[in-house]
Amino acid sequence: MATQTATTVNGTKALKITGGDVKMTGMQSMAEKMWIPFTAMGLMIVIVAFILGIVISGMESDYYSNSKEVRDAAVQGSDIAVDRGTIEAMKQWVPGFKFFGLGLMLGGITFLLATILGNLRLAGGRVQRALGVDQVVIKKPMIANIFPMLMMMGVMVMLAAFIISIVLATIAGDYWDNSIATVLNPATPGGQGDDLLADIGTIKSINAWLTPFKFLGMALLFSGIALALLTIVKVLRFQASRFVEVAQQAGK
């Protein structure tokens, strides 16, 4: 079984691997398997969201083929009111779905960067073994521990935003499946249609922070990607230092 001993290379904390070969870390092995499903699922979701956009477009085209009087007068349960409810509901959850797909794709990219790190680790170990010197790898830097967490948090934020948008979609579907002229417009607080007024208030107020919330999710994912890239920088610099050290030892 391989053992790890703490050491330093050119001022950078490192680990000397003895009694075995350098292997990918658990996270890197997992990332190697996960990047394809994440990216593929994300891509499929984004494509499905595009198709749903075409469906919404067709429904809107049908809905607006009616005059304003007819649209506004359409009563609850009528085809026109149901159409409006469906359109408004879809407009709520489809963007959340699309952002979730983007989140999965960015998660896939982060996993791919972790796979690159794993391969750099393996390649470094193999070159050192081939040269007949101790296999020394960089000790996992702090940012290497942070970037997978940021990525997972980003995906979770996107999933939460999607779930919230589904809840909003049900509220929007119920709200718009009413006559605009006789029920929605005359609604008054504490009077007729009070619950409908509360519904539209909820939809508008949640939407006001839901979009920045999705951007916050994107921010977490992009931070994860940036930190993964900076981890690659650290590993490459470490390898440069290590090979210089090997040459210096060989030259003595």
Partner: peptide, 20 residues
């Protein structure tokens, strides 16, 4: 932007609490 979005959400809720 997220914090401002929350504040905006509160304003929205107040505004839409009034009848048309």
């Amino acid at each position: 932007a997220f914090i401002i979005g929350i504040a905006l959400g509160i304003s929205y809720a107040d505004y839409w609490a009034n009848s048309q």
